[in-house]
């Protein structure tokens, strides 16, 4: 006779610690805290000649530095949650920056909204190729990345574009409200918007399903293709916005501006707990991700570390974090813990 179901799910038996670790991005958070503490302690010892490490002022400078990455990372989170990727964001940023610089002469609206529009269109191309034609997102965006990068160089005719002075525009990049720089404010707004969209809208919640099980999504009446294409459009728009801030900050644009940045952005998203397989991730995690990368660089400087050693450390921490994530998910039992 078949017994009553012996799997009892009455109470969640996990300890509070395990529950916390289960939250996406918790690993990075802990790593971040540990790092900051480490730097605070070590920097006066290791690098007494340096400026020391004041956490408060550093938070703001880190955020300012990471603005471009942060804005794009938020949008990219959506793309990755649906199980895709976008390797063209670096080149897109370069191209839109060049376009932006050349639009400044036409006024604030043109410079800001025109650029965002251009970015959105570039993103739309990605969206059509990936979800419309159902092409592999990795190779496709690798290809569009090369194309956009070339366009940038051609557009700038090899040199750089220096826009004319425009106070309102420049304020976006160089101004501040109180002690908080404008870019950081814009970043905060973008983070809030994407967090809201992801967690609180039908569109956002559906993205998780598309990434976790596209078949089930289809059976539930979700139009995966349209939603996927939209994530690419949003990414393009976000890139446009980031470009605006970038140009407003330095008041010039050159074609090599952001090459290679896509890897850093992807890393930020994945560090924050977003799974490259899709179906999992949060904006908060992404924020912790790019904040961590920023603090790594920042703290390393305070410790007097060679810029390149920073990369090595970042790489090692990334590998460790990714491994820990996978092992947690797959429930890998450590060999020495195996019983029997």
């Amino acid at each position: 006779m078949i017994e009553k179901n012996s799997i009892s799910v009455a109470k969640d038996p996990r300890s509070p610690l395990k529950k916390f670790m289960g939250i996406s991005g918790s690993g990075v958070f802990i790593a971040l805290i540990i790092w900051i503490v480490l730097v605070c302690i070590l920097s006066p010892i290791v690098n007494p000649a340096g400026n020391g490490f004041n956490v408060a002022t550093n938070i703001i400078s880190v955020l300012k530095q990471q603005t471009y990455i942060g804005i794009v990372a938020c949008a990219l989170t959506l793309v990755i949650i649906t199980g895709n990727i976008d390797l063209s964001v670096g080149s897109m940023l370069t191209l839109t920056a060049c376009v932006c610089a050349s639009l400044v002469q036409y006024g604030f609206a043109a410079a800001v909204f025109g650029t965002i529009l251009v970015g959105a269109l570039l993103g739309l191309v990605n969206g059509i190729l990936v979800s419309g034609l159902q092409l592999n997102s990795f190779i496709t965006t690798l290809g569009t990345g090369s194309i956009y990068g070339s366009f940038a160089i051609i557009y700038c005719s090899g040199g750089s574009i220096v826009p004319p002075s425009l106070a309102a525009f420049e304020f976006l990049g160089k101004g501040s409200v109180g002690i908080i720089p404008m870019p950081v404010i814009i970043l905060a707004v973008v983070v809030a918007i994407f967090a809201f969209v992801l967690m609180k809208t039908v569109f956002g919640q559906r993205l998780y399903v598309i990434g976790a099980n596209p078949v089930a999504a289809r059976y539930s009446g979700i139009s995966a293709r349209r939603d996927m294409a939209l994530t690419y459009v949003f990414t393009g728009a976000a890139v446009g916005l980031a470009a605006v801030i970038m140009v407003a900050n330095v008041m010039s644009a050159k074609p090599q501006a952001a090459s290679g940045k896509e890897m850093e952005i992807i890393m930020a998203v994945v560090l924050g707990g977003t799974s490259i397989m899709g179906g999992k991730g949060t904006i908060l995690g992404t924020v912790l991700g790019f904040a961590f990368i920023g603090f790594l660089a920042n703290g390393s400087t305070a410790l007097g570390l060679n810029q390149y050693l920073q990369w090595v450390i970042m790489g090692i921490i990334l590998v460790a974090a990714l491994s820990a994530d996978i092992m947690k998910e797959k429930g890998v039992v450590l060999p020495w813990k195996k019983s029997k």
Partner: peptide, 9 residues
Amino acid sequence: IATNYIFKG
């Protein structure tokens, strides 16, 4: 991508 950072550095 992660190991690339190590090698690059």
